[in-house]
Write a protein that binds this DNA or RNA. Structure first.
Lengths: 114, 114
DNA sequence: CGCGTTCGCTTCGGTGCCGGAATGATCAAA
DNA sequence: TTTGATCATTCCGGCACCGAAGCGAACGCG
C-alpha cells in the first residue's frame, strides 16, 4: 500500500506519466474517453451505454461517440445483450489490455521519480 | 515520500482521479492539453511555443491551438518576450493555479482509497 | 545595410466531438 | 395486441482540432 501522496507529488506524478503518454505513438484521448476506458476495464461488468453515462455523468451521445473512438482503436468492443436486445454490452479487448498495461507502467515509472 | 505503486494501484489511482475530474464542471482536456498545462506550471520558466513543442514532441500548430484553448479558459496567458520579440512566453494565471490545486486534491483523494 | 534563419501564427481540407432532439428496435404490462 | 417505457443510435448546427505548408515579423551575422 502506498503512502498518502502530497499535492506536489500527485501533480508531478500526473505530469511525468502524461509526458510519457503524449510523447508515445498512442492516441490522444480526452479525459472523458480515458475515464470511460478505465471504467470498462477496472469496474465489474456488465457495462451499458446508459450505465456508463450515469456513472461518468455525461450525455449518452457522448458515450456512444467515445465508444466509436475506442472501438476504432480496438480498445473496446460492442456486443448486443441477448437476454435484452435493447442493451449493448461493452467488452474488453486484447489490444485494450495491452495499452492499459503500458499506461500502468508509465504511471509506476513516474511514481518512482517522486 | 510515497512507496512504489503497483500497476493495479496506479490504474485505480488514475481511474478514481479521472472520474472526479470528468464528473466535475471542469473542461474536458485532452492528454496533450493537460500535459502542456502541467508542463507550464511544474517545469521552470520560461516556456515558449517551440520549446513546448519539442518537450512534448508534438507539432507547433498543436501547441498554438492548445494555448488558444487554455487561454480561453484563462488557465495560461501569452506574453511577448521583450528581449526577443519573435518569442512568446507562456505564463501562469490565478485561475489556472486554482484548477491545478483542485485537480491535485482529486489525485490525493484517489490515492487515499488505494 | 542585405540576407538567411528562427520565431509564432494562419491557412487549408478534412475529421472529431458537442448536447438536445428525434428515430427505430425491443420489452413488459394491460 | 396495443400501448408506453426504455434502450442505443442518428441527426443537426456548430465548434475544436489535425499536420503540412506558407506567412510576416524579428533576429544576427557578415
Amino acid at each position: 500500500m502506498a503512502d498518502k501522496l502530497t499535492s506536489q507529488e500527485a501533480l508531478n506524478l500526473w505530469h511525468q506519466a502524461l509526458l510519457s503518454s503524449v510523447r508515445g505513438e498512442g492516441p490522444d484521448l480526452s479525459a472523458r474517453q480515458m475515464a470511460l476506458f478505465l471504467q470498462v476495464y477496472l469496474a465489474p461488468a456488465p457495462h451499458t451505454v446508459r450505465g456508463l453515462a450515469e456513472t461518468l455523468q455525461i450525455s449518452k451521445p457522448a458515450v456512444v461517440r467515445a465508444l466509436d473512438t475506442l472501438g476504432r482503436l480496438d480498445f473496446t468492443r460492442r456486443k448486443r445483450d441477448q437476454s435484452d436486445k435493447r442493451n449493448v454490452l461493452i467488452q474488453r479487448t486484447v489490444k485494450g489490455s495491452v495499452f492499459l498495461s503500458e499506461f500502468a507502467d508509465w504511471v509506476v515509472a513516474a511514481s518512482d521519480t517522486l
